[in-house]
Computed example of a mutant assay.
Amino acid sequence: MDQNSESRRIAYLTALSQEIHKKLLRAESSPSQLRNLLQELFADVALEVDDRAKDVILSRVSDAISPVEKGRENRLCFYDVLSEHFIQVPEDGQPILDLIVKLWSQSFAVHIFALLFHKWMFEVKVEDSEKLLRYCSAFVRGSANVFWIDVQTNTKQFQSIFYYLLENVALDQSRLTKLNIQAQRDLFLLLSRFMFFYNAVDQLEGFLNHFPAFPTSFLVGGPADIFVTELADQLQKLKVEPVLLHYLSQIKILQGLELRMTTSTRLKSCLYSFTPPGGPMYPTRTVRHAAWDALDSLFPIGQYPRHFISLFFRLLYPWYWPSSCWHFLVSCIKAMFYSLVGLIVSSWEKLRRPRMSEKDL
């Protein structure tokens, strides 16, 4: 990129930083509207960059695209660009950071901090250890909040933050050590809860190998036990059905993990809680079947007694019989239909083969 384009890009991002600073000043001076103004600013920062702004923001050399543009799912939001800018030009981010620190206790302040400074935290050296401690605590809290926003809306708007924390912090010892030991533990617990949601299970082995030491590990077990415990707690909190089904579909990756008996029992109880109809979970039929599949895959021993016991308790609730019989009948009809279609297709293939052989001759 030529010098003029680079200067134009920096000037645009500097102006954008100044606008954010003005909105924070306005929020600070308006206590009655503070929460609404911070919420609006958070929404603005989380917006996807439009095509017109991309021409100014993105670094292009010939046909190459800068790494910042190669977001997962081809999304590029303003926080992605600004987080990079505050590393290159820290003086643009400092006034914003100073105001956010004053508003720590306000809702959405730590959200904005996590979006704008998730890379600055690990790339820019902070001399004051007390400040760094406060930054670490607010950063983990803000990251957890924005990830939960994704879960509640079943979107991946903040996926780039998750993957940066996983690949560039948790799996990179040089950056990880910038956090104090408690913040490291909190970060790994946070990533454990959302790893399934952001489709990062292929990195589970490396993630577990980098787990920091926990003082209560002799009670709770090793990294695998801690990970599964956090995952079980997360499952209990999920209320969005598509997200819960996504977790249950990926949980089979836990096969082969060496777990303590208490951890294994906890996971089994968690999954079993989604299998019966009614309270306290009130799972849908789809969720119940997904939970049964996960249980049978992870704990094959005893699956038939489990199903028998479940059937016995279902018989104690006669009002469930009509729907159960109906779904059983529909499942049988579907199975027979698919078997018939498979039989017809296989017979057709057998009839075609001799004819094709005669043509070859």
Rank of each mutant, 00 (worst) to 15 (best):
E69K: 00
Y317T: 15
R266D: 06
P67S: 05
E40R: 10
K22D: 14
P318L: 09
W148L: 12
G256A: 08
P276C: 02
F328R: 07
S347E: 10
L298D: 01
E205A: 13
N168V: 00
F147G: 00
P300V: 04
R52M: 11
R60S: 08
A109Q: 04
V341M: 07
K334N: 05
P305C: 08
A183W: 00
I20T: 09
P300D: 07
R353P: 02
V341Q: 10
K252G: 13
L219H: 11
L189G: 14
L343E: 00
L259P: 00
R288W: 11
L132P: 00
R353I: 12
S357R: 14
T263G: 00
K70M: 08
L24Q: 09
W319T: 10
D225L: 02
L329W: 12
P67A: 04
Y198N: 04
L41P: 08
A213I: 15
V56L: 10
F313H: 14
S143N: 05
L248E: 06
D98G: 09
L37V: 04
Y163C: 05
L41R: 06
S66A: 12
P300E: 01
L171Y: 04
S105T: 13
N154Q: 10
D63F: 06
L311R: 11
Q236L: 14
S17P: 06
V49R: 03
A15C: 02
A200M: 00
